[in-house]
Amino acid sequence: MRTDMRGPNRPRSPLTGQEADMSRKTLWVAAASVLVGIIVLGLKALAWWVTGSVALLSDALESIINVAASGAALIALQVSSRPADDNHQFGHHKAEYISAVIEGVLVVIAALTIMREAYNGFQNPTLPDQPVKGMLLNGAATVVNVVWYVILMRVGRAYRSPALIADAKHLMSDVVTSAAVLAGFVLVPVTGWPQLDPLLAGLVALNVLWTGWGMMKESVGGLMDAAPPPDVVARIKELVSIHAAGAIEAHDLRTRHAGRITFVEFHLVVPGAMTVAAAHEICDRIESAFEQDMDDAIITIHVEPEGEAKHRGVVVL
């Protein structure tokens, strides 16, 4: 955890050993995502090639976006892992949100492309060739996606990486899409109704479109400095209340997320006769509590004399 508690002019520290290790792990996972995406794309493209199915083509088109999005996530993670500098004094963590927004836009483009293919297929419907082979290939791709989704979500949540979490959510959308396509694909040769194939592609497009909207909405919240979840804010207040003994109150608490970093700032009111050294000791105690309880938090505390008390906010126990 990096903590800034002495004001905005304090020099920024380089990445700690733990942070550097986290960055390396997320980068390796992001790089592996690109490789996994290429493998899945190859399987789905082969499934479409042997069957000529519009539904399988729509599934393959979504996988192209997966590869592009994984590449964008990798670049974003490389940028976000850079330490703070003179031009970006709060770090580069928001680069991950930009990646997630880009991924959401790509998903929407994929949905519109699939809709076009579904419309063309509905105008000229044909029964797929070699449906069993196509199902096996697409099924294998789906299994790979499920396994990688679990890994991505676990790493993304552990390291609070919006880019990896967005990539994982997109993969799960792909899994749902593939499962629906496979289920419907069985019915095409059974019913002999070729229009069912492009109809499935249209349903795929709607699911992809909904997923892209959700991804962009969540990422824009991060870019707009949305507050952390209520349980995190409550824990922050609890830590300040417990470990600020000697102070009078803490008010004007503000928090925001930037990637895996949580920024916390508040005013700490102390007795007017308290020495600077004593106030500094309270700040150090709060810092130590945050370091033990919360990862990746940057804290700024403005110390004020008791005349500035507002008698609201965090009550010191």
Rank of each mutant, 00 (worst) to 15 (best):
V147T: 14
V150Q: 13
I151M: 13
L152D: 01
M153R: 15
M153D: 13
R154A: 13
V155C: 05
P162E: 00
P162M: 07
A163H: 06
I165A: 10
I165S: 11
D167Y: 04
D167F: 09
S173L: 03
S173P: 05
V175K: 12
A180H: 01
V181T: 14
A183W: 06
A183L: 15
P189Q: 10
V190I: 15
G192Q: 09
W193T: 09
P194K: 07
Q195V: 14
D197E: 05
G202P: 11
G202S: 05
G202H: 12
L203F: 15
N207G: 14
N207I: 12
V208Y: 07
W210R: 11
W210L: 10
G214C: 05
G214S: 14
G214H: 14
K217F: 11
S219V: 01
G221N: 14
D225T: 09
A227P: 04
A227H: 07
P230Y: 09
D231Y: 12
I236T: 11
K237P: 02
K237R: 15
E238I: 04
V240R: 02
H243I: 00
A244C: 03
G246Q: 09
A247K: 06
I248A: 02
I248W: 04
D252G: 03
R254V: 08
T255R: 11
R256F: 08
R256E: 01
V264M: 03
L268K: 04
L268T: 01
V269T: 02
P271D: 03
P271I: 03
G272T: 10
T275N: 07
T275Q: 10
A277C: 02
A279F: 10
